[in-house]
Design a protein around this nucleic acid. Structure first.
Lengths: 220, 220, 220, 220
DNA sequence: TATGAATGAGAATTCATTCAT
DNA sequence: GATGAATGAATTCTCATTCAT
């Protein structure tokens, strides 16, 4: 998990299989991953519109034609690469939520996870934040991801509301706000405009969401 | 000011001139505006990368070549269209800030202005929020607009802090948060995912930023 | 006849007309000439392929549309401009030939006239020497001009042969050689590669054609 | 070596290699050559300005895009095609000069080589004699070729002068004259205006340059 | 399977020509 | 007549995708 080569899949994958995995499958999965990661690095460098299949292939160390053995089209590469990384990100956030604890603690863990993920996988953010320039299908997928993301955050808020830790009203809207703020903060961090330590960033945002800015600081 | 045809310039323009404006100038300005607006609609429909000069021209009701009488390149169309609208948006937000009053009131006015602007000019949001894949110049311009936007919001917060209405700390970070939340909310509104009345949306966000979500609702 | 503005027509034109020339005709001819001269200057500056109608029009001080009142197409402008200048050049050479005298004298006069014409009308040479990139018609015209040119020179040689001043054989081939050498010399002069005084250039070439390079210099 | 398909490279290429040439290299070189030759034929037919990449590609029997696998731009095709052929031509002329012998003999060999080359590669002459309308770089290249050509001829004259075979004065100017005459003669031959046998053409020109036209024919 | 040469649809841009004013 | 805005055909170049080896 170096900064140089984002790993799209969870670090440890437990395979529960009863028939052996053929070498072809292993190689195939390895290629898929390599191409997706290459796509991300290229998009990170050049932007979505300027990421050519040729450059992605070169970056992945394969020939251009090979890419089409694993993906049907350029769009599919982008799509799958995004999806793989989003799934990973949302899985981590979910984990952070499920770990439980007081709301403030959970919120901080979620923010840390989220912002930290982008600190680590800077190449990914261009993909994640690109407006849907692609097909209708692609657009739909992005919206669905957004929905899942908001739903997770809303679950976190709703749970806290049930416990009486936060005002009960409209967890989804709060979730939207959190997502928006994180996006903007990540943008500034990746773009080099801001370089607060992660913990500091998280504390500031947790304060903001918990207490607003009108009240005097309550804790810590 | 229909949704169909965003107007890029202030609604009422008072011309104080003593020498008449030639017809050519008027036609020229009209064409420029028509092309910019067409560009916005096409980008709104197809996304930035898929907006071709041909389609922009058709949308504007002119031939492809005509576009190049008014703009040097596709990039310039996009650039100018974005800039015209951003200038207009930021001018309105600034006005909302300068009108003064208690923080909560100012904040609500700003949110209303901002979100309302995008409600009115839905086509514009893809341009405003697009990652800049283009030239270095284009990238710089976008960052500069972002900077201006945040600076305005920060000024609002700083003024309130001076008056003791909000916690003094770090107006710029608050500004970034506000910008992020508004972006996300606008995205959902334009995308049809959310249809709260504008006033409701504003009140919710104002509450959030003023009091956070941990305290019980304080006012209203 | 300034270097700045080559005049395509003989300096003094004696009109033998019995009905008055209307103002329209005068203006018309003036415009025609202005446009042709402009075309030459532009071609001289930019090359044939890069000389646009717009730039020719601007150079001539008229609007683009006006050009089409006097010429049917860009090609016709180029065609006519070339033709006018070629006619002028050939007329001068003919004059130089017709003035008579010993061969050597006539040859020198012709060379002086020819090379001198291009020294004066440097803009013209690009047109004159351009290979026929245009239509079949245009190609034919150029060949015809070449033929006339060679025929004139051949007449000069033939006359001298008749007088026994030069070897009788094949005046046309000699004429071709003279035309070729002049073209090359002019090219170098205009291109700035060579800057011998005109008289010197002429003397060298006259020596070459009269005596070859094997014999010792005979005269002067 | 048909008139239909000028061969840009020397007829017999002796490859002294100890590692095998890959098939890719061979195919690549073949394509390069095919495209260059196609370019020449198209320029020969349509003129430099009217030779489009599409037509060159079709003539070469490949798709438009293929051309760009081997050349960076239309200009480069033209440039390289010209250069390859010019290098070949000048190499042959140099060989003719270096073979030595009495001036008259060398001159005849050079003229035979030069005119003969264009008799064989008629398509090439439009490229060789075209004015350079293109980039500064392209212009420079053409001048440099011209310079090399003249320098070679001048060397020939200078050597003869040293041996006392010709008047010593100004070999370069003589060289320019020779170049000019050859150009013109080639032009007429290619254009179908003249169809003297090559040997006859050469003898006539050799006579002209050696003895001029005033003296009675001295030899043969 | 892997390759990368070949393809050709499609994009931006230019400019000769037309035509309403 | 004169103008210059408008047009759109034509051109160069790119790049996703295919396919023979």
């Amino acid at each position: 998990m170096t900064a140089d080569r984002p790993v799209l899949y969870p670090d440890r994958v437990v395979r529960i299989v009863n028939h052996p995995v053929t070498k072809e499958q292993v190689v195939g999965e390895f290629r898929c991953r390599a191409i997706q990661e290459a796509a991300m690095r290229v998009v990170g460098r050049k932007g979505l519109a300027n990421a050519t299949v040729q450059e992605i292939a070169s970056e992945a160390g394969v020939a251009k034609g090979t890419v089409y053995l694993y993906f049907r089209s350029r769009e599919e590469i982008i799509e799958k690469a995004t999806q793989t990384a989003v799934d990973e990100l949302l899985a981590r956030i979910l984990e952070a939520i499920r770990a439980g604890g007081p709301f403030r603690e959970v919120l901080e863990r979620v923010l840390t996870t989220h912002i930290g993920y982008f600190d680590e996988h800077q190449d990914f953010f261009r993909l994640y934040f690109a407006m849907a320039d692609g097909s209708e299908e692609s657009r739909r997928r992005r919206l669905e991801n957004r929905r899942r993301h908001v739903a997770q955050l809303a679950e976190m808020v709703a749970a806290a509301a049930k416990r009486g830790e936060v005002r009960a009203a409209e967890p989804e809207r709060v979730a939207v706000a959190v997502a928006g703020v994180v996006r903007e903060v990540v943008f500034r961090r990746v773009d080099g405009k801001s370089s607060y330590p992660l913990a500091d960033e998280v504390e500031f945002l947790a304060d903001l969401f918990c207490d607003g800015i009108c009240a005097p600081r309550r804790r810590r």
